[in-house]
Design a protein around this nucleic acid. Structure first.
Lengths: 234, 234
DNA sequence: ACAGAAACGAGAGCACTGCTCTTGCCTGCC
DNA sequence: GGCAGGCAAGAGCAGTGCTCTCGTTTCTGT
């Protein structure tokens, strides 16, 4: 599947990567809306029309960047969780993952905006993005599952209107985790990204300076709202 | 200040309003990135160059729309809070404001994205926006202050790294509210918008169906994290 | 080994954008 | 009444996404 059969295919993957790299560079400098196919082609020394052999439209290029960004942030989250697997209380592991995600966002604000900011104009996310997009969520679920299997999860209350959703989500994404915890987890997940987005999109400007402590405190409380214990059961 | 001195000025404010209305219409249909000055001018039957007499650039038009959006969402929040002033427990008042904001967002997704989504390309918010931008926050602060003055506020813990920020914010925006509550409030504020943004920007698609119950539950917990009581003191 | 097919790069061109400059008209003020 | 300033319109510039055509190169089936 990923074997390269000849010089032609080899060149193709190289050019594709070069285009994405240059696009990412322009993205970091100017933002998504100013990313221009012609400028990318110019910088690469090729005709703008040649670029359409690799990406059929500007939106397709953006989609590729979005998938890469989801994968990058997912990898960061997975690594943060794996580094601390079972050596640390669940709340701390949860906080470490959230902090890693936040730091990735601070380092790559435009890529973060690409995936968690307002969806671009008429753009609707294609199906290729749903897999990579769920990686961070799965990391959080994994932390809850580990706690659940160790019998350390304090299952929160579940409103009756949420039961159907919670049970479906648990069956689909988080087998073995109590539905009530899954529902709380999804809400907590959105709130974590709310904190990061507010900071990145400038809503804390001239309001909050000590952003990391504020973030850690809120994220810790969210972990507790999911039912994670602050210290492992003796 | 707002007196209209002649037919000329009267015409000017009317044309300005017409331009903003048409721009808002196109914003709602296509999104911010596809908003085109020429299309607005075309729809209004004027030359595109004439439009520059009213807004020196596309960014200035966007800024005007942003200010209007902040004012609209601020008015919605103020109204929701005023309608329930002192007739209802603080947690319910807080939740009502959050729900009102959420519903405004659902009704005006593109305008919401304009103010809480990723900042547009090279755009940096001018000072005109800070006033209107703070109205929603002030409503939340007002709820906390009312509870505090009634002696009903359970002041949360405050991490030492947050003390300076919290005291400065309290002095600047929320005199009379305990600094610890202000810090918790700012975090809660970001999390409320995180929940709304995730829903509006499609991150809950194919994941959560019962979004309002999830929202209400999370928002209620946030109110409690600020120290608001669920029922008024007897 | 060679012909046909497929992939490729380059250029011209279309319709659109934000924005500027110049030219005249028309209105409100002294 | 003149006249300065606000105003609309048109032409034009540089840039954009995207399409089409036209040679050339590379791979592939016989």
């Amino acid at each position: 599947m990923s074997t390269i059969r000849g010089a032609r295919e080899r060149a193709r993957v190289e050019v594709t990567a070069a285009i994405k790299d240059e696009a990412r560079k322009q993205l970091a400098e100017e933002g998504a809306a100013k990313l221009s196919l012609r400028a990318v082609a110019r910088e690469l020394g090729m005709a703008s029309s040649a670029l359409y052999r690799y990406f059929p439209s500007r939106d397709d290029l953006l989609t590729a960047l979005i998938v890469d960004a989801y994968d990058a942030i997912g990898a960061v989250a997975e690594r943060a969780a794996a580094d601390r697997a079972h050596t640390v209380p669940p709340v701390e592991r949860w906080t470490a993952v959230a902090c890693a995600v936040r730091e990735w966002g601070l380092a790559h604000p435009h890529e973060y905006a690409l995936i968690f900011g307002s969806p671009v104009p008429g753009y609707t996310a294609p199906m290729d993005t749903v897999g990579p997009a769920s990686r961070v969520g799965l990391v959080f679920i994994g932390i809850a599952r580990a706690a659940s299997e160790a019998g350390e999860l304090a299952v929160p209350a579940l409103a009756p209107e949420l039961r159907r959703d919670a049970e479906r989500m648990a069956a689909e994404f988080a087998p073995g985790v109590p539905p009530a915890a899954v529902a709380a987890l999804v809400a907590a997940w959105a709130q974590v990204f709310g904190l990061i987005s507010f900071e990145l999109f400038g809503q804390f400007n001239r309001v909050v300076e000590a952003r990391e402590p504020l973030f850690r405190r809120a994220v810790g409380e969210l972990a507790r709202s999911v039912g994670l214990p602050a210290a492992p059961a003796a």
